[in-house]
Amino acid sequence: MSEMAPARTYSQIVGSQFRKNKLAVISLHIIYILLFVFIFADFLANDKPIVMRYQGSTYFPVFREYGVKWFGLNWQDAFKSQQFKILEDKYEEGDWAIYPVIPYSSTEYNLQVKLQPPSRAHIFGTDELGRDVLSQMIHGARVSLLVGFVAVAIYVFIGVILGALAGFYGGLIDIIIQRMIEIMITFPRMFLIITIVAVMETQSIINIMIILGLTGWTGVARFTRGEFLKVKNEDYVVAAKALGYRDFRTIFRHVLPNTLTPVLVTATFGVAAAILIESGLSFLGFGAPPEQATWGSLLSSARDTLPTGWWLTTFPGLAIFITVTVYNLVGEGLRDALDPRLKQ
């Protein structure tokens, strides 16, 4: 590869190929935005101010919330009830607060404004308990993306290892792993997941991620196995064997890096599929616990209010649609960019 254009590395070539696909580039930027929302959700939508001046001192309640959650800090006495909006009545001269763009948390309810259509106060409207839909969507994005990435990471890990073993060794190991794959794919995946979820004691997104991970690895395993079969008789593999490297080193240092790129492409599609399945499960009420806002559960709550509550279906539905689409487009772009036949 490097003979053709010594100045360009492999990733540069792939990068320039990828950039030729406008749609994929736009999609990648949308993924960046989603990642941004994922990381800064608490600063985008929260009922706590980011910075506030209260009775002579300055506080950072959103940061404090992280401290309380993860580092065992406590709320200051004045903020024990965490109702910052009520504190406004006690403001003294010179007190102020800077709120996030959407000054509502995903669980904060206000019955008086329930089922409001989009307005200036609630850009995407409110649900049946008067919770802000946009805030729920922002926090729901966290669940969706987290489920997508973690589930795929789990199944890529399992799939790659099993596929590598099957492809590299062949024989009995290959037969066993192949039969395992066949048994797994005979179950319709959604039904298998629903069955497992139904038996679970507690509802949590961690369970969903693990279940999705444990049921999704077959495709990756087959893919890796195929790639291994292709590569395992290459000269460098034979050389590695001749040098007396242990199988572990041969598999993971020499063969795997050369087979991984197509797997990563399928993983991108996998993220989209996992997001869709999570939404489906939440829609059916099997997914995240009720207090956890997710796109799927928002859609589900909208079912009862249709046709009046159109904003409850439209916005989360669009969010799911856009997310799944951009992951697929990026996956396609990546696939094309990595395809050596298209390279000029």
Partner: peptide, 24 residues
Amino acid sequence: QFSILILLIIFANLGLRSLESYDD
């Protein structure tokens, strides 16, 4: 994106509203 967020925060807080409660 970060600068956009900062701008949005400033913008949103400039016109900070008291909770609009509709007459039920």
